[in-house]
Design a protein around this nucleic acid. Structure first.
Length: 256
DNA sequence: ATGTCGCCTTAGAGGCGA
C-alpha cells in the first residue's frame, strides 16, 4: 500500500497537477494540505472520476486538509485536533482507511518568531503530541503525515545558518518535533535514508527549485508496527518542476 | 528588503499568509 502526502497550496488552482500526479503514481491513500477552499468548493467529482473517494475539512482562504482513498472506504474519526475548541483553523483530519488510522495535518508555520503566531505553533505542537501519545497507547497501526513546518535537523535545510531564527527551524521547534518522535514514532523517510539530503519544499522565490535550495518539512511518522512494514519511501521531486506547481512536492511511503 | 504565488475584497490594486 502506498500512502502519499502533498501540500497543494490551493486544491482548485492545483487540480490539473494533482490529477496528473495521481494518474502517474496511483497512491492508495493521499493526504492533502492547504486546500485554501471553503467546504463547499472542493473538486469532489473530479477526484471521484479519477477513482478517489475523499474526506475533507475546508476553510475560506486558508488551511484545509483532505484524505483521499482509491478503491477504499474512508471512515472519519475526527476533523480537529483535541484540546482547544476555540481553534477554528482547519489543520487536522483523521480517518481509518484499510485498517490504518491516518492523521492528516498542517502544522502552523509560526512566523514571525517570536510572537503570537509562534506561540500558536508551539501550542498546536503540544496538542499534537498529546494526541499522538493517545494514538500510540491505542496500539493500532497509525500514520501521522502532512506538512509539519519543521526541518528536524541541519541535514534537512539547504543552508542551516540562514534558518536558525526562523519558526521552522528554531530550537524550540526542533525540540518539539523531537519530543513527538521520541514518544515512539518513526520518521519513515529518515529511517530508510539516514544520511541523504532529501527535500520536499522549494520556495517560489529566487529560483529555489533550480538551485535546489530546499527544505524537508513534509513528514511521515509511523507507529512501531507500521515501521516494521515500511518497504520504501521517496519524494516525487519532478512534480515540483511542472507548470503551475505547488511550492511543495508530494512525498510517499510504501507499506507491505 | 527582496523575490513569487494564491487567497480575499464594495472590482482591481493592495493586504495577508506562506
Amino acid at each position: 500500500m502506498k500512502i502519499a502526502t502533498y501540500n497543494v497550496n490551493s486544491i482548485n488552482a492545483r487540480l490539473p497537477v494533482v490529477l496528473r500526479w495521481l494518474s502517474e503514481t496511483a497512491p492508495d491513500v493521499v493526504c492533502l494540505q492547504e486546500l485554501k477552499a471553503p467546504q463547499d468548493n472542493f473538486p469532489e467529482k473530479a477526484l471521484a472520476d479519477a477513482g478517489y473517494n475523499a474526506l475533507w475539512h475546508g476553510q475560506k482562504s486558508w488551511n484545509g486538509v483532505a484524505i483521499l482513498a482509491r478503491n477504499a472506504d474512508i471512515t472519519e474519526v475526527r476533523r480537529a485536533l483535541p484540546g482547544d475548541p476555540e481553534d477554528e483553523h482547519s489543520r487536522y483530519i483523521e480517518a481509518v482507511v484499510n485498517g490504518i488510522t491516518v492523521g492528516c495535518l498542517y502544522l502552523p508555520n509560526g512566523n514571525p518568531a517570536p510572537g503570537p503566531k509562534f506561540d500558536y505553533k508551539l501550542r498546536w505542537f503540544e496538542r499534537l503530541t498529546l494526541h499522538a501519545a493517545d494514538l500510540l497507547a491505542a496500539g493500532k497501526p497509525a500514520v501521522l503525515t502532512g506538512d509539519y513546518n519543521v526541518m528536524p535537523t541541519e541535514l534537512d535545510v539547504y543552508k542551516p545558518e540562514k534558518w536558525v531564527d526562523d519558526a521552522l527551524f528554531r530550537p524550540e521547534t526542533r525540540a518539539a518535533f523531537k519530543k513527538l518522535v521520541d514518544l515512539g514514532w518513526t520518521d519513515a523517510v529518515r529511517k530508510l535514508y539516514p544520511n541523504d539530503k532529501i527535500y520536499t519544499f522549494w520556495d517560489y522565490f529566487r529560483n529555489a527549485y533550480g538551485r535546489d535550495a530546499g527544505l524537508r518539512i513534509d513528514h511521515f511518522l509511523l507507529t512501531p508496527d507500521l515501521a516494521e512494514r515500511l518497504t520504501g519511501a521517496g519524494v516525487n521531486r519532478d512534480v515540483r518542476g511542472w507548470e503551475k506547481s505547488s511550492d511543495h512536492a508530494p512525498v510517499w511511503i510504501e507499506l507491505a
